[in-house]
Design a protein around this nucleic acid. Structure first.
Lengths: 169, 169
DNA sequence: TATTGTTATACTCTATAACTATA
DNA sequence: TATAGTTATAGAGTATAACAATA
């Protein structure tokens, strides 16, 4: 799906809000899709994301911010173009994302002496703090997934997901 | 992400367009997410969706339309509210979706004698034809997923996805 | 009172194309 | 010429809130 991408969540929120996220009723017929892997991948990803949001208590969290912060932390010296390629998103989507993160004081841009067109991205202390917090939520969320899948099945399950990721585009 | 949802793809397009969908470079570090099920679910769903789009040749295909058409076909007598609950989306998102499908001549609305607030949805012949075509693409796409996962592993893999779907929200 | 469906409004994510300033 | 990044623009998808008609 030009739909998902390479991230998980996002940051920043004003308020937490209740929990009215619409819940699928699942009493409907699905036809041929009832046994499709692709369809279930989609449903599982949806459920997983909702659970993550539940953990963070921030319903405004959406893909992009979290991944951006994480990729910046894990890849020192990364540039906006590197982020674009790493996240699998067009560079034009990176500009407003970084603008917002910078405006919120979560990241900063540093000049690159060797190429004055570009700049290096880095987390500010506030960005580190927020990312740490999100990572804790992510860890708790994923522990639930581990439990559901069964820790003994996790390696095989992950291997199958990785196979899909690598062998499809 | 309040991000994904309960569908797979969508319908309608003007032209096919090249294939410039940005491709993840994957040479970047992922930190703690490197072993997270949730993260890999997201990547796999992303890859799967891109592959589906590749099959259909319609890059404008996105979640929503396809599911709507499918749920309408598979659940005779369904109403907009039923669709909303089945798809796990707020009813306010259903209105414009149905408006577009109707405008394209893919669905029609029929009055409900017992409740004049509502109406029953049904595919037109054109809607059936389009849905059939999309289902063929979906079948070929999912056959690739079967091959990647390995047909002998499919039942267990699907069971794990279903466990995630059912046990998380 | 509660529900169905619509409308108004807004925000996120995404992309293409055109532009600039460098390389 | 080609690349890094920005801006302008556009279109899905989603949601909340308020509303009219009906139950």
């Amino acid at each position: 799906m030009p739909e998902s991408d390479s991230e998980l969540v996002e940051a920043e929120a004003e308020e937490t809000a209740g929990e009215p996220l619409v819940r699928r009723s699942d009493q409907l017929g699905l036809g041929p899709l009832g046994d499709y892997i692709g369809f279930h991948l989609r449903l599982a990803q949806d459920a997983s994301f909702r659970n993550f949001v539940r953990h963070t208590g921030r319903r405004d969290l959406r893909p992009g911010r979290f991944t951006a912060l994480l990729l910046i932390r894990e890849n020192p010296g990364i540039t906006p173009m590197g982020l674009s390629r790493g996240a699998g998103r067009d560079k034009s989507t990176i500009t407003p994302l970084l603008r917002d993160l910078e405006r919120q004081g979560l990241i900063e841009r540093r000049p690159v002496p060797t190429d004055r067109r570009s700049h290096v991205l880095a987390l500010t202390p506030a960005g580190q703090t927020l990312l740490d917090e999100l990572c804790e939520h992510a860890a708790r969320h994923d522990a639930e997934l581990d439990e559901i899948v069964g820790i003994e099945n996790k390696p095989a399950f992950l291997a199958q997901l990785r196979a899909i990721i690598e062998r499809l585009g």
